[in-house]
Amino acid sequence: MSIRSLLKRLSFRQILRLTGIMFQNPLLIYPTLKATRRTMIICDLHYGKAHHKNGKANAFRHALWNILICHTTFRITKNKEKSVNWAQKITDLHEKLAPNKPIETAMDLHNNEVGRKYFLDLTTYFEEEIITFLKENTQKAKKVTDIKEILNHKDKLVYLLEIDTRS
């Protein structure tokens, strides 16, 4: 989905909220967009269209997106906490602006948070090392069928559906 098509779907109030967040940290907008674009390229390469569904590939995408936002903004902020807080603001807002079913939203928010936690240990890693680490952890992801189950997997990625991710 392009930025233009996303903006067309937003209400005036949602656009104001997005604008307000962007004005808080204008230097972080470009790195965030860069990380978002890079996330989609990597996920398309490794998982094809499967990352758009609610399987392990989707968990990988959400965690990677948060790690890359933190990584790219960390170069500017020089502060892990600031980068993590920014990534949370952006990705939480995304979930509010593009709503899903409650369990899908809970899964996405959880995987976003796990990605931010992983970032704290991956600050000095290069992109390929991050991808390898994350793919290994994606294989250990836990399937959930209820929102309450997500709480049982605080440091693990979670997913809803078994999806064939072989290209």
Rank of each mutant, 00 (worst) to 15 (best):
Q139H: 14
L134T: 04
N100Y: 12
I42Y: 01
I41H: 09
F60H: 06
R17S: 13
I163D: 01
H46A: 10
P31N: 04
I150Q: 02
H62M: 06
D92M: 11
A59T: 00
N54T: 09
L122D: 07
L28V: 03
L18N: 08
R166N: 14
T123Q: 12
E136R: 14
I90E: 01
H46E: 14
D44M: 10
L33N: 09
A50Y: 00
A63G: 01
L109V: 08
E81H: 09
H110Q: 07
K80S: 11
E113Y: 11
L120H: 12
N66V: 03
M1H: 11
A59N: 03
T77K: 07
E149C: 07
Y47L: 01
R116E: 05
K156Q: 14
R4Y: 14
M40C: 10
T165G: 04
Q88S: 13
K135R: 14
L160R: 04
T73S: 09
I21W: 08
V114Q: 00
I131T: 06
A50E: 06
M107H: 06
S2T: 13
L120G: 08
N111L: 02
K96L: 12
M40D: 13
A87K: 00
V84T: 08
T73D: 05
L151E: 14
K156E: 13
Q139E: 15
P99I: 09
L109T: 08
L157A: 04
K142R: 11
L93K: 03
K154W: 03
E149K: 10
F74V: 06
R37V: 12
M107W: 02
N79P: 07
I21M: 15
I103G: 03
E104D: 12
A106D: 08
L33H: 07
R116P: 07
V84C: 06
I29K: 04
E113Q: 14
L18W: 06
I76W: 00
L10E: 02
L160D: 07
N137L: 09
V158C: 05
